[in-house]
Amino acid sequence: GKMTGIVKWFNADKGFGFITPDDGSKDVFVHFSAIQNDGYKSSDEGQKVSFTIESGAKGPAAGNVTSL
């Protein structure tokens, strides 16, 4: 299901970062391709987002990331 969290950091040059879930669980990796914004796929530190957890090649990753 959908979770909410805060972007801990995001490196636009490398195209990835981490989200800290609101439920206190482990930080989740986020790749720019998962960000659902139109246009520039980046996110700012401290941005509140909703997301799903997908199982990626390197473990859990955020999917369907949407700014709230």
Rank of each mutant, 00 (worst) to 15 (best):
W9L: 00
I6N: 04
K48I: 08
V65C: 04
V28G: 00
S50W: 08
N11F: 05
G46H: 10
N11V: 03
D38C: 14
G15H: 04
S67K: 14
N64A: 07
K41Y: 12
F18D: 00
G63Y: 13
E54W: 10
G24T: 02
Q36T: 11
G39Q: 10
K41L: 13
G5T: 02
S67D: 06
G17M: 06
S50R: 07
E45R: 15
A34M: 06
H31E: 04
F32N: 06
G1W: 08
I6L: 06
A34N: 08
A12I: 12
T52Q: 06
K8D: 01
A61F: 15
Q36R: 09
S43W: 15
G1T: 13
G63C: 14
F51E: 01
K2T: 11
D13W: 12
G24A: 04
Y40C: 13
D38Q: 11
G63S: 13
S42K: 10
I35N: 03
I35M: 13
A12F: 12
I19S: 01
K26T: 09
K58V: 07
T66M: 11
D44E: 15
G5H: 02
G56M: 08
I53K: 05
F16S: 01
P60V: 11
D22Q: 04
T20I: 12
S33M: 07
W9M: 03
V28I: 12
W9Q: 01
D13Y: 13
H31Q: 04
P21S: 04
S67P: 14
G24I: 02
K8N: 03
S33L: 08
I6H: 08
K58S: 09
A62V: 03
I19F: 02
V7L: 13
Q36I: 13
T4V: 07
D22L: 07
T52R: 05
P60C: 09
K8L: 06
A12Q: 12
N37W: 14
V28R: 00
F29G: 00
F32P: 02
P21I: 04
G46T: 07
S43E: 07
F16P: 00
I35H: 03
D13I: 14
I53S: 03
S33W: 08
V28N: 00
S33R: 07
K14W: 12
T66S: 08
A57N: 10
S67A: 13
A34H: 06
G56K: 07
F32C: 12
D44S: 15
K14G: 05
K58E: 06
K41E: 08
G46V: 09
G63P: 02
G46M: 09
F16E: 02
S42Q: 09
D13M: 13
G15E: 02
I53Y: 10
G24F: 04
F29E: 01
D38S: 14
D27C: 09
H31F: 09
V65W: 02
K2L: 12
T20Y: 05
D27L: 06
S33A: 07
T20C: 11
Q47T: 13
V30A: 02
G59V: 03
K48A: 11
I53H: 03
V49W: 04
D44L: 15
T4D: 01
F29Y: 09
D38F: 14
E45M: 14
D44V: 15
S25E: 05
G56P: 03
T66F: 07
T66H: 09
N37Y: 13
M3S: 06
K26Q: 13
P60A: 08
H31A: 06
S67V: 15
I6D: 01
V28Y: 04
V7N: 02
V30H: 03
T52S: 08
V28L: 09
D38K: 12
S25D: 07
S25N: 06
P60N: 08
G17V: 05
I35V: 07
Q47S: 12
A34F: 05
Y40S: 09
D23Y: 05
S67I: 15
F32I: 14
F10P: 00
K14E: 04
G24K: 05
G39I: 11
E45W: 15
K58R: 13
Q47D: 11
T52H: 07
F51N: 00
T20E: 06
I35S: 03
S55Y: 15
G56Q: 10
K41Q: 10
S33K: 07
K14V: 08
T20L: 09
K48S: 07
D13H: 12
W9N: 01
G5L: 06
D22R: 02
V49C: 05
P21R: 03
G39W: 14
S25W: 04
A62G: 02
S43H: 12
V28C: 06
F32M: 10
G17S: 02
S42H: 13
V30S: 01
T52G: 02
L68E: 07
V7K: 00
H31K: 03
D27A: 06
V49G: 02
F29Q: 01
G39S: 11
T66R: 12
I53Q: 03
K26W: 07
K26M: 10
F18H: 01
E54Q: 11
V65R: 01
E45F: 14
K26D: 11
P21K: 01
G24Y: 04
G24C: 08
N37T: 13
G56Y: 09
K48W: 13
Q47G: 08
W9H: 01
K48Q: 08
F51R: 00
M3N: 05
L68D: 05
K58F: 14
V7Y: 05
K41V: 11
G17L: 05
F10A: 02
G17Y: 08
E54D: 08
K41G: 12
S55K: 13
G46S: 07
G5Q: 01
S33F: 06
F10D: 00
S33V: 04
A62H: 02
A62N: 02
G39P: 10
F18C: 09
F29P: 00
N37R: 10
G15I: 06
G39R: 09
V65A: 03
A57Q: 10
V30I: 09
G15N: 03
P60F: 11
T4H: 07
F51P: 00
M3H: 10
V49R: 00
V65G: 02
H31W: 09
D44A: 15
A61N: 08
K48G: 06
S55C: 14
V28P: 00
I35F: 15
N11T: 03
K14F: 09
T20Q: 10
I35P: 02
D38T: 12
V30D: 01
T52D: 07
K14Y: 09
P21G: 02
I19C: 04
G17C: 06
Y40N: 09
L68W: 06
D44T: 15
T4G: 03
F10Y: 09
H31R: 05
G56V: 05
T66G: 04
V65T: 01
I19T: 00
A62Y: 02
T20N: 03
A34R: 06
W9T: 00
A34E: 07
V65H: 01
K14A: 08
G17N: 02
K2W: 11
T20W: 05
T4K: 06
K8T: 06
A61L: 12
Y40R: 09
S42P: 11
K2R: 13
A61G: 04
I53M: 09
K14T: 06
K48E: 06
G59F: 07
Y40K: 09
D44Q: 15
G63M: 14
K2I: 12
P60I: 12
V7E: 01
F10E: 00
E54L: 13
E45Q: 14
G17T: 02
